[in-house]
Amino acid sequence: MAAIPDADKGFGMTQLALVIDLNVCVGCHACVTSCKQWNHSGEAGPLSDANPYGAEPSGTFFNRVQTYEVGEFPKTETVHFPKSCLHCEEPPCVPVCPTGASYKRAEDGIVLVDYDKCIGCKYCSWACPYGARELDEQQKVMKKCTLCVDRIYDGKLPEAERKPACVLACPTSARIFGDIHDPDSQAARAIREQGGYALMPEWGTQPANHYLPRRKTSIKLHPDELQREDNPLKVDGKLPRPAAGEPALDDVTSW
């Protein structure tokens, strides 16, 4: 549920974000097109497409899922990697914007672009190390993930649905939405307990979005688990039994 800023906690305390669990993301792109759909159909849409039915079709998306391969065969890991604006706590894209169109909201930490102010100079996109911003080629303004501000505060929606479109769409619930400054939120807990990490920490941008790493479950078997009393082969007389004539302690000791 959307953490509507709590006045008591004071502004600046809330930082809404997505926590993306790479342990379960299967790379299905549901978050990609549901995001496109929501933001295309909403107030701020459309998100334009160039050559939609021609060569090299290309359009504006706020969220993309990429794929990486780690390691070499047969020890290869395939990593599906969704990426949208990370709503950095120190967003380098904001101070560089000459018009103030890019801003970070004090009340919930969402980084937004005011399309009416944006002059389309692209400078903010240069200032984002993550490639999270895309210039809409038709509207000529800079766009990016809004964390679905137009959903998460929409009082007309049932509370359970006051979440970003991509979060509701994700079939593996790999996208956790919440206030990462609220230690009790599911998002903060996931970061804390599952080793949530930030992308490119080297630049001090302090992305609010975090990623949860892959975890491996293995089964440790002890050899004696294969040799048990209840082995069904016994019932059918199939467990090899030593022949009566084979040496035994009886042969050497009388007690």
Binding site: C28, H29, A30, T33, S34, L168, A169, C170, P171
Partner: peptide, 18 residues
């Protein structure tokens, strides 16, 4: 959008559906 009350998908949707 996915229908949260549907027993199959419980509100989620996929890339195609969306």
């Amino acid at each position: 959008e996915g229908n949260p009350e549907h027993p199959l998908n419980k509100g989620v949707i996929c890339a195609k559906g969306a």
